[in-house]
Every structure is written in structure tokens, then in C-alpha cells.
Nucleic acid binder design. Structure first.
Lengths: 141, 141
DNA sequence: TTCCGTACTAAGAATCATTCTTACTTAGTA
DNA sequence: TACTAAGTAAGAATGATTCTTAGTACGGAA
């Protein structure tokens, strides 16, 4: 993702474009690891030593509110961030606390159709997430 | 749930039966509100003024490890507890932060079968949860 | 029934992820 | 170019939770 794309992304959220916002967005969007605020800070501070941790938190929150990234709380209660906005599920590794994306259109369709047929009385569904907890299989070498 | 049932439940987890454990388990099991540790503490301290908040946290954690209750982290990062051990889904109200249970055997079967047919390479699934976020519908009176 | 060992508990300090506060900086528009 | 409102720094504050140390009590064995 080049600077122009990032600039467009940030502006599309109605936000001012700043250098720090650029490097923070870049850090989040170039990883699939669903980073914590702390991780983003560590990535970014090396080339931007003046940046403060508080600003990273605040900037990530601003991005979430502008809907250019999304956040979720992991099973340990820590905020994780994701530049991919499309609905997808997560695989939580109970042992390593790693989180992986899981995309399956068939599953998404299946569930969406299920809830279209089975409206929940008194509840308007806005987001559906499937959370899969387990562990990575040992590779037998 | 009477005292004998609670005693059996606690003993079934290999834990010593104590008065405080009884009242904590009772508080969790008599509510459907998916209580926080703080809520349990408030419920329990009125008739047990000597109990400490730290003990409530510790006891709830002990119950989780003994698998007699379960916990999850809500969308604000706060631990919530549930005496119902069977797999079920949760409805999160984005506006009020209320959490409701959602049981549907058809959905559970659908998803279980989906993942039996679609094994995830390198990942052993242990728990599956469907999280539904939305809001309660306004009642038109 | 008594004793004893180990698990349980109190209370407040410590921890950690995150937010707040206040003052300074800067992007972008007029 | 000037101005203004948004953005940022830095460290204190917050809140949920865990830890530490010393005292308490359950339950099994004698």
C-alpha cells in the first residue's frame, strides 16, 4: 500500500492526513497478526521516536470511529486491530494467543441465511462473528 | 438450586466446599445477566460483609478452572461469567452493553456439521461461538 | 472427637492496558 | 499568509484484575 492509497484511506474517513497517522495505518495494514496498540507502537517508534504511546492508542481509536480499521477484544481482554473491514471470523489459538483470520463465503452465507430465516424477536442483528477457539495442530516431522 | 446441589457442583470440580464458594456460585447461577465479578461481589457482600473483592475474583477464576462455570470477555474487555456450560451464543446489545443468551440447536448443528465437512488445515477446533452484535428493537407502544 | 495439613480467604498493594489532561504543534482552508 | 481546529506529547489517572503475606477453616485421618 503506497502513500497515496493511505492518504486516500485516511481522508475517506474525514480525517486530517498527518505523517503519524500514515505510519500507524501502514503498520496496521501491513500485518495479518491483528496487532495490539503496544505492537503498533513498537513498530512505529523506531523510525518515529517522538511518537507517544498515548497518541498511538488515540489514533487507532480515531481510525476505528472513522471506520477505516476495526477493533475487537481478544480472549484476554486486549484490544486488537484489523485493517480488513470485511466480515470474517477468527481462529484463536488457546495456547499461543495467536489470532488468524478465517474467511469462508459459504459459512458467511449459511449464517446470514440462517438469521434471515430465523429472525430474533426484539433484536436487530448488525454484525455476526464466528469465533473458533482451539489450537494449532502439531506438525509431525 | 438448593444447597445440596451447589455443594455437589462445587465438589464435582474437585474443590473444597466453603460458605463463600456457595454464595458466589449461587449468585452466578441464579442470574441470566452474565455477571461481572464486581456484580457478584455486590450481590454477595450484603449478607457476607467480610468477603473481599479479591476473593470473589479468585473464586470465580477457580470455578472456571474447575470447569463448573465458564467465562468470556465482553466487547468492552470485561470478564463475564456464566453457570450454563452448554455451548450457546450471545447477543450483545451495542447500546446498553447487555448480553443475552441465544440457544438454537439447529444453528449449533449447522455450524458443527459445517466444520466437520470443512476441516481447517493445521487447526484443531475445540469451541465455536457465534457472536451477534446489534441492538434491541424499539417497541412501538 | 480432635488434630493437622493444605486449601481458602482478607486486605490492600501492584499490575497492565487504556484513557485523560493540559499545553504545545501543525494541517489545511480562506 | 494567517488562523483555527484538529492532532500530538508526556505523564498522571483510571479501572479491572492479580499478587502477596498472613491469618482462617474444611475435611479426612487417627
Amino acid at each position: 500500500m503506497d502513500i497515496e492509497d493511505i492518504k486516500n484511506k485516511i481522508s475517506s474517513g474525514g480525517l486530517k492526513f498527518t505523517h503519524q497517522r500514515m505510519v500507524i495505518y501502514e503498520a496496521v495494514s501491513q500485518t495479518h497478526s491483528h496487532p495490539t496498540a503496544e505492537w503498533v507502537y513498537e513498530q512505529v517508534k523506531e523510525n518515529n521516536p517522538s511518537i507517544s504511546l498515548g497518541t498511538v492508542y488515540k489514533t487507532l481509536d480515531t481510525f476505528v470511529n472513522a471506520k477505516i480499521i476495526q477493533k475487537f477484544i481478544d480472549t484476554n481482554g486486549v484490544m486488537r486491530f484489523d485493517a480488513v473491514l470485511e466480515a470474517h471470523s477468527h481462529l484463536y489459538d488457546k495456547e499461543t494467543n495467536e489470532i488468524r483470520d478465517y474467511h469462508n463465503h459459504q459459512l458467511e452465507t449459511l449464517i446470514k441465511e440462517f438469521f434471515e430465516k430465523n429472525k430474533i424477536k426484539d433484536f436487530e442483528v448488525e454484525d455476526i462473528e464466528v469465533v473458533l477457539k482451539g489450537h494449532n495442530k502439531q506438525k509431525i516431522n
